Amino acid sequence: MAFSTQDTDEVLSEINVTPLVDVMLVLLVVFIVTAPLLTNSIPINLPKTEAVAPAEQKDPLVVSIDEQGKLFINKDEIQPDLLQTNLQSARQKDPDVRVQLQADDGVNYGEVARAMASIEKAGITKLAVITAK
């Protein structure tokens, strides 16, 4: 092995990033401290008003399917083949009728799908499926 004993005075051409990092950290702290102070708010006395009641919304029709597969509209039992006609008559009375569908956990999905199809065939577009938390 050969060792070199020459003393060369070469210039180190790498940038020392430590001072750069120090300066950036100081600037970051300054910006973090001063940023909340820059949000000036103009004091305004807003007028006082009375609360207005929200617009009345009609109660939706609730279509329920119990564990035995029986259909109910607002707690009135109906035959499954009459669901579509009952919903069509309700839609004729109120074109913006809303329907909520709730089914027991043990009900076959096919029955729920049939009820949803009947609701769609009745022309009702506002349907909410109710579930438990």
Rank of each mutant, 00 (worst) to 15 (best):
S13G: 06
N16K: 14
L37K: 13
D22Y: 06
L82Y: 15
G110W: 01
D22C: 06
Q102E: 10
N40A: 08
V11P: 08
K121S: 14
D105S: 11
V99C: 03
G106M: 07
A35K: 01
D9K: 15
D94V: 04
E67G: 04
N86T: 12
K133V: 07
A35Q: 03
E14G: 10
V29M: 14
P95H: 11
V62E: 02
N40V: 05
P43T: 09
D96S: 11
V30L: 14
T49L: 08
E77Y: 01
P80Q: 13
A132C: 02
A2W: 11
L61C: 03
E50G: 05
V97E: 02
L20T: 09
P80R: 05
I32W: 08
V17S: 14
T49D: 05
E10V: 09
T8F: 10
L101I: 12
Q6N: 15
I44E: 07
L46S: 12
L83N: 02
T49S: 08
I130P: 03
L28N: 07
T8Q: 15
V29N: 04
N16M: 07
Q100W: 07
G69C: 05
L27W: 01
P19I: 07
T8N: 15
L38V: 04
L71F: 12
K48T: 13
I78N: 01
I65V: 12
R91L: 12
K48I: 08
I44N: 04
A117C: 04
L37V: 09
D81G: 06
E14K: 15
T18E: 10
G123D: 11
P43G: 09
Q102V: 12
A53Y: 06
Q57I: 06
K58Y: 07
E56C: 02
G123N: 12
I65Q: 00
L127D: 01
A103L: 02
V112G: 00
R91P: 05
V99R: 00
L20A: 08
E67L: 06
P43F: 04
L71E: 01
A115D: 01
V11K: 15
E111F: 03
D22T: 07
T85Q: 14
D76F: 02
T39L: 10
E67W: 03
A115E: 00
D76R: 03
L25R: 04
E56I: 09
A115Y: 00
K70Q: 13
N86H: 14
T131Q: 07
P60N: 06
M24D: 05
S41K: 13
Q88L: 09
T49P: 00
T5D: 09
D7Y: 14
N74H: 05
V33P: 02
T8L: 13
Y109R: 14
A2D: 12
T8S: 11
R114S: 12
L82C: 08
I130N: 09
A53R: 09
G106R: 06
I42E: 09
